[in-house]
Nucleic acid binder design. Structure first.
Lengths: 217, 217
DNA sequence: AATTAGTTCGAACGATCGTTCGAAATTGCC
DNA sequence: GGCAATTTCGAACGATCGTTCGAACTAATT
């Protein structure tokens, strides 16, 4: 019995000297996660079989189970890592920026940049949001809630700074809709890059929310 | 062999005297489609088994195959009917309205009203957009393209009427994102009704797109 | 009542699903 | 080289998948 609980051991003191040494185990696991993400993206979580994942990653069917104990846990690992990374990146980018509108624009840019740079992972995150059962689901839901909360706070800041009046909930969910829907249509050969799309979507959303005169209440 | 190609016979001269007589066959098929929609909504197309559908609809597993020849065809029937209905409803509502902004608002209201009134069907339509294979997929894609095209035309009209400049493609896809994302969050016990949401989303989107001064180009 | 057409079902088909297990292969260490 | 720990794999498990088939049931027609 190699490890009591696979894919749980905390990557053995990673980043000791900045240039990520990382265990052989960790590297192999990351490879598998990457391939699995691609397959889940293409065929969906339910539609992808463990044998599909085996073929794509070049490892035997049984070999996969050395790295995680179930298909569901694999999805969980992908979702948790993806979501954690995007939240962490956002926090770093927001540091030191105080202008409310600028902060919202950073949120949008961060989201879209990561989305387009990791399209497969983000599609799996968006599209398979309900695939996990109770235990795994709640952990991912917690990160999601944190991310949602950050966006709510950004918009509330903007509201109070400019004395605006709109439903924060509806605004946040509309913004997420605009951004997340991108996995259904974005074509790198036709559409602009993340920065351009972020600017245009930011224009639409911010102008839409930052009511300049007209409309009394 | 009852019928050469099940679920294809054109519902035997329906609507002869307005009050939809409809064959026994047609009524039963519609019932099954309703139950199947619910199951696909809850468990996803791949995640739902024919035995799930059998249980939910109260008909034996084999009995289902009297009404359609495959699980995929069942999904096709649901998607095609749902999409056709929403397009048809939209066309009716747009008749006689000439103001460009009003027409866009009708589009939004029609979409959201149908979405919330037929949440399960619309989720299956949005979420399982890639589940169909070549043959079935292209037919649904054709209706989707028509619907998309209508929205593009509405926005182009608005653009030329007011001399605006924005990417129609991005605007349309952002709008669809805002609206379609609703299946991930709408809670009838918390959120407002379709008309209110349509108004608020319409405000955000239209104000965002109808640039009033500022920003030279 | 008898005959036909339309509808439903139990039972089974082969295929594929996620997962397990013990043995083989590989690696890191002395 | 030899030994132990780590990593990989072939083969199989029972369960469940979508689908089929012929018999049984019900409804409509004569």
């Amino acid at each position: 019995m190699a490890t009591a609980s696979t894919a749980t051991r905390v990557s053995a003191r990673r980043a000791r000297a900045a240039h990520v040494p990382a265990t052989r185990y960790d590297r192999r696991l990351a490879e598998i996660l990457t391939h699995a993400t691609e397959v889940f993206c293409k065929k969906g979580y339910e539609g992808a079989s463990m044998r599909d994942l085996s073929r794509e990653s070049g490892m035997s069917l049984a070999g996969l189970y050395y790295y995680f104990e179930s298909k569901e846990r694999l999805l969980y690992l992908i979702q948790k890592h993806t979501f954690s990374t995007i939240v962490q990146r956002l926090k770093t980018r927001l540091e030191g920026v105080s202008d409310a509108e600028e902060r919202v624009r950073i949120f949008i840019l961060n989201h879209l940049e990561y989305f387009l740079a990791n399209q497969a992972a983000m599609k799996v995150l968006s599209h398979e949001a309900e695939a996990l059962k109770n235990g795994f689901a709640s952990e991912v839901a917690a990160i999601k809630r944190e991310y949602y909360r950050i966006c709510v706070d950004l918009l509330d800041d903007l509201k109070s700074e400019r004395g605006l009046q709109f439903s924060t909930r509806l605004a946040v969910l509309s913004l997420f809709g605009m951004m997340n829907w991108i996995y259904t249509w974005h074509n790198p050969r036709v559409d602009a890059d993340a920065a351009s799309i972020a600017r245009e979507m930011g224009d639409i959303f911010l102008r839409g929310v930052v009511d300049n005169k007209r409309r009394g209440r």
